[in-house]
């Protein structure tokens, strides 16, 4: 396992494999507190954090359940700072027609909902448009700016 090669691919480092000998469920890949995410925009803080090998860690999910879904706002600890972000791609099993990504992607935003970066180099799921139009989010989740800076949709 080469950390440099993993970084190049953009994967988070190996998870601790438990040595308990009782039945466990398969890995669900949910985003909860302590989950490591991958920043996919070109914000300064994000780029530096990913380059150093210290990906942002989720410290709070703004959700009734502590599990993050696509489009949820999360609070992350990145380079010693607290920043908010929007989950833009998940490794978790999704509903039909919703894309499932190989990495848990995050776009950093400030408190108003404006993204910190200017471009997103990864395709964004179109389900965000549906969430924007159909549901009302109360905690600063304004996807319009995020959808504006996206380069590609899936």
């Amino acid at each position: 396992m080469n950390i440099a090669s993993l970084r190049h691919i953009g994967l988070s480092s190996q998870q601790y494999i438990s040595k308990c000998y009782f039945h466990q469920t398969a890995s669900l890949g949910e985003i909860r507190k302590m989950a490591r995410l991958r920043v996919v925009d070109n914000s300064e803080i994000g780029k530096r954090a990913m380059a150093e090998g210290k990906p942002p860690k989720c410290i709070h999910v703004y959700n009734k359940t502590g599990v993050g879904k696509i489009g949820d706002v999360v609070l992350v600890a990145i380079k010693g700072e607290k920043k908010k972000g929007i989950l833009v791609g998940l490794k978790q099993k999704q509903n039909p027609k919703v894309p499932k990504y190989d990495c848990n992607n995050l776009v950093l935003i400030d408190d108003n909902g404006t993204p910190l970066g200017t471009r997103i180099h990864v395709p964004i799921p179109t389900i965000l448009r549906t969430i924007l139009k159909e549901k009302t989010q109360n905690k600063g989740a304004d996807y319009t700016k995020l959808l504006g800076i996206a380069s590609r949709f899936v």
Binding site: K97, P99, Y101, N105
Partner: peptide, 21 residues
Amino acid sequence: KFILRNVIDHEGIEVLYEMYD
């Protein structure tokens, strides 16, 4: 159902489709 996989912009993406949807 069937799952389609592709790598777009260096990001692996999989989508599940229901055939009779």
